[in-house]
Design a protein around this nucleic acid. Structure first.
Length: 87
DNA sequence: CCCCTGACTAGAA
DNA sequence: TTTCTAGCCAGGG
């Protein structure tokens, strides 16, 4: 487990219902500013156990391979998603 | 070690 | 507005 993965996973695990952060914010918060891509790679291989749906792309755009599913999960958190974007 | 890809971004053209 | 480029980190060939 790399330092990056360890820190990034913890940042995401701390997210509460209603919270939405971008890949870049997670990376910066984890101490690796600019490593937004690595966050995506991490979520891709990481199974459940973390609120991955609360991580979106810059501008609130849903970048997950299944935007519809992510939008539904966000809705359960009380977050409104319009045209695949969080406002 | 080199090269390419990707749930990314910000800035330049 | 759309397209490119450069930067970043992890992974795979």
């Amino acid at each position: 487990m790399t330092d990056f993965e360890d820190a990034a996973l913890e940042v995401i695990a701390r997210l509460k219902p209603g919270d939405v952060v971008t890949y870049g914010e997670v990376a910066a918060e984890a101490g690796f500013p600019g490593a937004a891509r690595a966050v995506g790679s991490l979520l891709r291989k990481t199974g459940a156990d973390i609120p991955w749906w609360r991580v979106v792309g810059a501008g609130g755009y849903l970048r997950s391979p299944d935007p519809a599913r992510q939008a539904r999960l966000l809705a359960e958190d009380g977050i409104v998603v319009i045209d695949k974007r969080v406002h």
